[in-house]
Design a protein around this nucleic acid. Structure first.
Lengths: 186, 186
DNA sequence: ACCATCTTTTGACAAAAGTCAAAATCGGTT
DNA sequence: AACCGATTTTGACTTTTGTCAAAAGATGGT
């Protein structure tokens, strides 16, 4: 199962549980280049991307911006370490395009866990999906060349290719900017 | 929090809950080069490593063995995808040294989830730890050279350095065997 | 102690990827 | 249409890493 196959329908929530879940969520618009979360802040919300595109990134020792994830429509935005442990975030999350989110606060989400037991399972499934994604990503670094990683990226995220700067893709797949440019002309 | 700081003591289980948890676990000895899990098998057990050392690996397109993880004393062994979804494993898990494990079956672990509610939290915490580990690993591929990845490996897992083949480390950090050998002479 | 096997090192070379700077291109604004 | 800044491409070059094969070293079994 990957995130594209995931749906809340699986969990057979009662009407009331669905109500409780939905009631915690509020819409939030975010313009291109605005932040959903900054380094050092504690991630206080989960966001669901209804429309638009965001990305997360951090700065390495040499102050290069390293993109860690893209969040297009249908994604849940969450800085795992920061949200789960309510500790300061090590990364920024910033909108690439004007976006519309649906957000829920940490406190409200905690209540939902208590009121709707199925959320424990939902949460576990989402963690498992995340882990599966990351395993695949690690594998690509262990076994693929830069060119192959780029090809895989194109295959997996064709919808991102036209929408994000190449530099973001370059750092995402762990390749220098100029090298990616050369890879692209075959 | 990483796995070395994790302990079941955190969860204030009652004597009875602890009893129920422990009762599911049985000791299992495994000799060097024997398998804990083979590719294609469904992972039916979680293992806790009391003594010894194991590793997980798979074969890439060119039939290279790629090491994905090491499991020294104190680790939980679990093939996430296979155990969680009860699907055939894509990787092998094999003992590097004669090892002693404490194992619990999938069925028994599912019962424990029901009988000891705190296990939901335990499970979530362990997932979070796993995710944090993987984030760090991904970051190392995105930002570090082969030499730096080797240095980080040495710093993080000094106890493994003397105990595993260099070839295992090489594929773990995504470097050719011969290259790692050269890195090591500075 | 000896052999067979596996692991690690080394050499010579090729290919891949990084660096730095300049040029070209693209986007949005006035 | 001209301009500014950001992004992308390109050139010339260096460094890193991979490949292949052979040699050296280590290990375990008998």
């Amino acid at each position: 199962m990957d995130i594209s196959e995931w749906s809340i329908d699986k969990y057979n929530l009662t009407e009331e549980e669905l109500q409780l879940t939905m009631s915690g969520y509020t819409p939030k618009a975010i313009k291109a280049n605005e932040f959903f979360l900054k380094e050092g802040e504690v991630c206080g919300h989960i966001g669901y991307v209804i429309k638009g595109l965001l990305r997360s990134y951090f700065y390495d020792d040499q102050a290069n911006e390293i993109t860690t994830n893209f969040f297009p429509e249908g994604c849940l935005i969450i800085s795992m370490d920061s949200f789960n442990n309510q500790t300061p975030s090590k990364e920024y999350i910033k909108a690439i395009e004007d976006s519309e989110l649906s957000v829920v606060s940490y406190e409200r989400q905690m209540e939902i866990y208590k009121l709707v037991p199925a959320w424990n399972q939902i949460c576990k499934d989402l963690s498992d999906i995340k882990i599966a994604e990351m395993l695949k990503r690690t594998e690509s670094f262990q076994t693929l060349s830069a060119t192959e990683r780029y090809q895989r990226f194109c295959k997996e995220y064709p919808q991102l290719l036209q929408r994000v700067n190449l530099g973001y893709i370059a750092s995402y797949i762990g390749v220098d900017n100029a090298t990616l440019s050369r890879i692209r002309k075959r």
